[in-house]
Amino acid sequence: MPIDPSPPPDLVPLSKLPHFDPRAVPVAAIDSDLPPVPPEQLRPEAIRARFRSPPAWQPEARTEPRFTDRQPAHASVLVPIVLRERPTVLLTERTTHLSTHSGQIAFPGGKRDDTDVDAADTALREAQEEVGLDRSFVEIVGQLPTYTTGTRFIITPVVGFVRPEAPLALNAHEVADAFEVPLQFLMTPAYHRRHVMDAGGARREWLSMPYMDGSTERFIWGATAAMLRNFYRFLAA
């Protein structure tokens, strides 16, 4: 049965391409059968060692169904792991007026510039532009496989450790908010929810990882959730 994807009246839509609200789509399954990544494997030295000697593994998600005719564009995001006593991941909430992925939870990042040296350079530059994170506070430790969005961005996730004292200054044009989510939460599949929607005869599937930040729900879904799921597969392999 097709699902009505229109957002509830009290919610701001999280997607414009196509226009539907993922919070209105029921949960099809929860991956509570998969084990969490043990806390010792989330320590900085363990993650460094994992990137130095990667295991045999395969990313679970690589591409989304295409729903635009735009030409593909290369981009990078920074997966910023803040080195607190219990590591966290720094995420942003995009402003609602942006043309793509408005209002969504995202990693700092964006399109590659011709002057960028490599994917890490793009991620660091964009993080500084979006949230004021100076690259001197970041240690790049590795990269994950590319992920292609339905809007045709070919994204390279760049994993970096962020010193907890790093100051932030949000770019109000692009970023409505920035917040941290415990890495252990994100690497626990019992919090990974699967959604399925039939839209115009086409089947669309995605993950969500809703996180309660005090009284605020941070609805992590789509490309951000998919890249985090790939990170889980990498660390759990």
Results as ranks from 00 to 15, higher is better:
residue 177 D to M: 04
residue 34 L to I: 00
residue 32 S to Q: 06
residue 1 M to C: 07
residue 220 I to Y: 07
residue 6 S to T: 14
residue 7 P to E: 03
residue 236 A to Y: 02
residue 59 P to N: 05
residue 149 T to C: 05
residue 62 R to V: 13
residue 137 F to R: 07
residue 204 R to S: 10
residue 99 S to P: 15
residue 237 A to L: 02
residue 150 G to F: 07
residue 31 D to Q: 14
residue 119 A to G: 04
residue 82 V to H: 10
residue 125 R to M: 09
residue 15 S to D: 14
residue 235 L to R: 03
residue 67 F to R: 09
residue 199 A to P: 00
residue 127 A to V: 06
residue 219 F to L: 03
residue 26 P to S: 00
residue 54 P to K: 07
residue 45 E to C: 08
residue 166 A to Y: 03
residue 229 R to Q: 04
residue 220 I to A: 09
residue 60 E to M: 06
residue 224 T to W: 06
residue 178 A to L: 04
residue 209 M to I: 14
residue 78 L to D: 11
residue 170 L to I: 12
residue 135 R to P: 02
residue 85 E to C: 01
residue 123 A to F: 12
residue 215 S to F: 06
residue 22 P to E: 05
residue 40 E to D: 15
residue 119 A to I: 03
residue 127 A to T: 14
residue 201 G to W: 03
residue 198 D to Q: 14
residue 175 V to C: 05
residue 186 L to P: 03
residue 161 F to A: 09
residue 97 H to L: 09
residue 88 T to K: 06
residue 27 V to I: 15
residue 182 P to S: 05
residue 139 E to H: 04
residue 163 R to P: 00
residue 228 L to M: 14
residue 94 R to D: 04
residue 70 R to C: 05
residue 77 V to Y: 11
residue 178 A to K: 06
residue 234 F to L: 06
residue 237 A to E: 01
residue 225 A to E: 00
residue 32 S to G: 00
residue 161 F to C: 10
residue 212 M to V: 00
residue 175 V to T: 13
residue 125 R to V: 12
residue 28 A to L: 14
residue 139 E to D: 12
residue 104 Q to R: 15
residue 212 M to S: 11
residue 71 Q to N: 08
residue 27 V to H: 04
residue 78 L to V: 10
residue 152 R to K: 06
residue 73 A to S: 13
residue 43 R to H: 09
residue 152 R to L: 04
residue 66 R to E: 10
residue 108 P to N: 06
residue 67 F to W: 15
residue 104 Q to T: 12
residue 40 E to N: 13
residue 59 P to Y: 07
residue 148 T to V: 13
residue 160 G to Q: 03
residue 91 L to P: 03
residue 109 G to M: 10
residue 8 P to Q: 11
residue 128 Q to S: 09
residue 162 V to W: 02
residue 39 P to V: 09
residue 58 Q to S: 13
residue 93 E to S: 07
residue 3 I to C: 07
residue 27 V to Y: 03
residue 102 S to M: 02
residue 81 I to R: 09
residue 86 R to Y: 01
residue 17 L to W: 04
residue 86 R to T: 14
residue 26 P to R: 01
residue 186 L to E: 01
residue 80 P to D: 12
residue 59 P to A: 09
residue 177 D to Y: 13
residue 159 V to F: 06
residue 236 A to T: 02
residue 152 R to E: 13
residue 181 V to Y: 05
residue 208 S to M: 11
residue 100 T to R: 13
residue 161 F to S: 11
residue 16 K to S: 12
residue 72 P to G: 02
residue 181 V to P: 01
residue 72 P to C: 03
residue 207 L to C: 01
residue 56 A to L: 11
residue 136 S to R: 13
residue 117 V to F: 08
residue 152 R to P: 00
